[in-house]
């Protein structure tokens, strides 16, 4: 597993190529925006009938990250389910799989805008989770320090000798870290979107996911939008 290590709010964190965040000191693994059950929700609402394999694909990737890191604590940063009914509609096999991942670990579900209510799964459900200098919540709060949040699904676009590459990415400056979406069926918001300019006004950095995580400066055009 190739990650990118960096300092944030006095802690040493590793952004994994998979899109997970690893905090070695606390043996904490954080993933954001799993959106489990997205295909079921879309079909239920008369939308597209997407290939119904995204729950198993997302869980399989999460399992690989958990097996590799063996975290003591797993924090799911909100929007873990595409909606509360989707959580309720998960097949037994998926529920068993989640239970297996949770076994022997401290598991924290943070509420998101898609999944504001408790779901019938193990683990604790909280609005925010604080651990030392870090605060984990779903949507970035005003004037936060040492905050790790999700919600926006940032993605980076780079031109490499004429070849266009887009990747989901972490974005951070000195006070805020915004996580990429981890779920298989999640879209992205360009890192040049003005919203990121407002959230990360200082010199910032993007860490691109992929086979290996790469850090690049956050383009400043976000500020001028």
């Amino acid at each position: 597993m190739n990650g990118h290590a960096f300092e944030f709010a006095g802690t040493r964190l590793v952004a994994q190529g998979s899109g997970a965040l690893w905090w070695p000191e606390q043996r904490l693994l954080c993933v954001s925006d799993l959106h489990l059950g997205k295909s079921e929700r879309m079909a239920r609402r008369g939308g597209a009938m997407l290939p119904p394999y995204e729950v198993r694909d997302t869980l399989a990737r999460l399992e690989r990250d958990i097996e590799a890191a063996d975290p003591a604590r797993v924090v799911c940063l909100g929007d873990s389910f595409d909606d509360v009914a989707a959580a309720g509609a998960l097949e037994d096999a998926a529920l068993d799989w989640i239970a297996r991942l949770q076994a022997g670990r401290n598991w924290v579900w943070i509420v998101g805008n898609h999944d504001p209510a408790p779901v019938a799964l193990g683990g604790a459900l909280v609005e925010t989770y604080e651990d030392g200098p870090l605060t984990f919540r779903h949507i970035a709060a005003p004037a936060a320090q040492g905050e790790v949040s999700g919600h926006y699904h940032p993605k980076a676009a780079l031109s490499l000798r004429g070849r266009q590459v887009t990747r989901r990415c972490f974005l951070h400056d000195a006070s805020r870290l915004i996580m990429p979406a981890y779920g298989t069926y999640t879209g992205g918001l360009r890192w040049t979107d003005p919203v990121f300019g407002e959230l990360l006004p200082g010199p910032g950095r993007a860490i691109l996911t992929g086979q290996r995580a790469h850090a690049v400066p956050l383009p400043r055009s976000v500020a001028t939008g």
């Binding site: 597993m1 190739n2 990650g3 990118h4 290590a5 960096f6 300092e7 590793v14 994994q16 690893w22 070695p24 890191a69 780079l158 490499l160 000798r161 070849r163 590459v165 010199p203 950095r205 691109l208 992929g210 086979q211 290996r212 790469h214 850090a215 690049v216 400066p217």
Partner: peptide, 30 residues
């Protein structure tokens, strides 16, 4: 693609002067 990406990331970080802010080598095996 991975190699190009790596070169480009290093180049950009260097241009931005951010490589020196990095506390450890930018590639780091967990």
């Amino acid at each position: 693609t991975e190699r190009l990406l790596e070169e480009e990331a290093e180049r950009l970080m260097e241009t931005a002067g951010l490589d020196t802010l990095e506390p450890a080598p930018s590639r780091w095996r967990v």
